[in-house]
Design a protein around this nucleic acid. Sequence first.
DNA 1: GCCCAGGAGTGTG
DNA 2: CACACTCATGGG
Length: 286
Amino acid sequence: MRCEMKFETVISPLDLDLTLACGQTFRWRRLEGSWLGVLGSEVIRLRQEGRTLTIEAEPGRDDIVALVEEHLRARDDIRAVQRKLSSDRVLSSGMRDLKGLRIVKLDEWESVVSFALATYANIPRITKMIETLCSKYGERLPGGFRAFPSQRQLRKASINDLADCGLGYRAKYLHQLCRYLGPGEIARMKSLPYDELREQLIELPGVGEKVADCVSLFGFGRLEAFPIDVWIERAMGRLYGEKGNYRKLRSFASDRFGAYAGYAQEYLYYNERTISGRGSCMFSEQ
DNA sequence: GCCCAGGAGTGTG
DNA sequence: CACACTCATGGG
């Protein structure tokens, strides 16, 4: 990548490593102390040194900083988030060490595809599936990078073509998604309240409650969404003694975390995955 | 080889 | 409503 444009900005608090490597997004690669990724049609390199975030990109756009700031949700008031969640005895102590972990804002279409593919797979595999899709169907970008393929680009692929990308049974869902969900529908859904957005997402093939909540949170930026996967289910049982079906756990989270349930979920998710890799728990049981 | 993964869809009691 | 079963596969 021949980066010619260079910018600096401050997003605070921010821990780029925590934010880009915790399973919200699957397209950033860590290389020699910086992060390489694609936002829209822009190849971007990010490097954090203290409070300074350095952004490098190809010349061509003058709003690269705004692009990155939107992706990292620079306008989120993390202090307000943590103040609100600090009333929760379980989260209050450990979450201070995670204040640099920010929710990211993904492209809506990319989020639907990514999390529909993410069912019943681990993160390395999800990463590979998406990488293969991008390399086969995404627009060519400088430096051998690829944009995330659009709905129209993916429509050209048959179910077998998609299965050849290692998608398994998910190939059929993606094939249908390309025919049911277009830019028009996405534009319309942006203005819906969360509960209606969620209902309409669940109507899509391959999208159930969990995927709809991931898409609501990461794609449509609804911070009240609380996706419950196996890790969160485990964490809620262990830390809160809370067990049951999706509806019950979701209701518990909504009552407890309210408008910032998405951040609470990210803290719990990070912690649960970390301790399974022989780390120690950041949160104390209730 | 075995186990499990940021589950969804479908059928049954 | 709650379960049970299937789906297809690769990474650890």
